[in-house]
């Protein structure tokens, strides 16, 4: 396996050409692992571009990360491609940041319908609201759970 980053560089180049103002940061972690930080307002357009033009049609999951020291949440869409066979080993992390006191972002269910469950989990575990989600309810937690979102960093449990 070659260790060059040509594919990743080409992807970043294409994204930057099409969205010069909205791609805030790109980072190649290693071969086949790529991070792209996007402005939250434009994430839907970037996602649709990734799906239609670059072949990223397979959602792998959605992570939410709580950076409470920097007072923000980060929502990471892990997406990969099934259509382009040479890119099946590549995972693109599409990231967006929202302030911690007003966590509200647009949902990407209309782009990848498979992210529905992951966004629901981020909603209940972190309290992030997804605009345009068809069914923003609790997924794993019980319906009568009224505590704070349990995976936030400021929720402490007795530990070692």
């Amino acid at each position: 396996m070659s260790l060059s980053h040509e594919r990743e560089d080409a992807l970043v180049q294409k994204l930057k050409e099409n969205f010069p103002a909205d791609i805030k940061e790109t980072n190649i972690i290693r071969r086949a692992r790529l991070e792209v930080t996007v402005a939250p307002e434009k994430i839907k357009d970037v996602a649709a571009f990734l799906r239609d033009k670059l072949g990223f049609d397979h959602p792998n999951g959605v992570s939410a990360v709580d950076y409470n020291r920097e007072n923000r949440f980060e929502i990471v869409y892990h997406i990969s491609s099934m259509r382009v066979k040479d890119m099946r080993d590549l995972v693109l992390d599409l990231k967006e940041s929202v302030p911690r006191n007003a966590p509200k972002v647009g949902s990407l269910v209309s782009v990848w319908s498979g992210v529905e469950n992951y966004e629901r989990e981020s909603f209940e575990m972190f309290g992030i609201e997804f605009d345009g989600h068809p069914r923003l309810e609790k997924l794993f937690l019980t319906d009568n759970w009224d505590g704070p979102p349990p995976l936030r960093k400021d929720i402490r449990f007795p530990t070692d």
């Binding site: 999951g61 992570s63 990360v65 990471v76 892990h78």
Partner: peptide, 20 residues
Amino acid sequence: ECSFYLIGEGGDKPYRARYI
């Protein structure tokens, strides 16, 4: 596919470990 999105911050514990 079982995957971990792991963020380390230098300690012996991960900062975030997303388990899919």
